[in-house]
């Protein structure tokens, strides 16, 4: 299961990967546009218009800021995939972890839409983040070993 509003304890959200693996120098406006369209696409299948889209648009907008903050001293190469920025996966893990956590937190905020459930929101965010992050890490490991 990729996500959804039905599960009370945990969603598995790996679709933000769409934005994470875009080339580093993709124009920020294009990333935001992809975020909106991608989020809407997910929303169509989960019958939750705007919930995923609003979270993914914010994540897409923040991607540029996170990339700037995590830029290596040598800078990024042109058209570099984030998966290739460093020889090992640790840079990629920290980059995806920041964005994924923000995405899941915002998704849960919009999904619950009430701060009365703040404890539920936090628990669900942490559980969802742990499981989704494992899968996104697994993807990176597979990509590096079998060169997808």
């Amino acid at each position: 299961m990729l996500g959804g509003v039905a599960d009370p304890y945990l969603d598995i959200l790996i679709y933000p990967l769409l934005l994470f693996i875009l080339p580093v120098n993709t124009p920020a406006a294009v990333v935001v546009l992809f975020g909106f369209l991608g989020g809407l696409g997910v929303d169509i299948f989960y019958n939750s218009p705007g919930v995923h889209a609003s979270a993914l648009v914010l994540t897409a907008f923040l991607r540029k800021l996170v990339l700037n903050a995590l830029e290596p001293r040598t800078g990024y190469a042109v058209d570099e995939s984030p998966l290739r920025v460093r020889p090992s996966n640790y840079w990629y893990y920290s980059y995806t972890a920041v964005l994924l956590f923000i995405h899941i937190l915002v998704y849960n905020l919009v999904s619950f839409f009430s701060l009365a459930h703040v404890l539920d929101i936090l628990i669900k965010t942490v559980l969802t983040f742990v499981v989704s992050m494992l899968l996104i890490g697994l993807h990176a490991v597979l990509w590096r070993t079998i060169k997808l």
Binding site: P27, A28, A29, V31, V32, L33, G35, F36, G39, L40, D43, S48, P49, G50, V51, A53, S54, V57, L58, A60, F61, K64, V110, F113
Partner: peptide, 24 residues
């Protein structure tokens, strides 16, 4: 442009959220 696109899309998305989701 990315910031303004973000604002526009976020408003559209939240508009959808509050208009087409029962609980929200």
């Amino acid at each position: 442009s990315s910031f303004f696109l973000f604002i526009v899309f976020e408003i559209i998305a939240l508009y959808l959220v509050v208009n087409y989701n029962q609980s929200q």
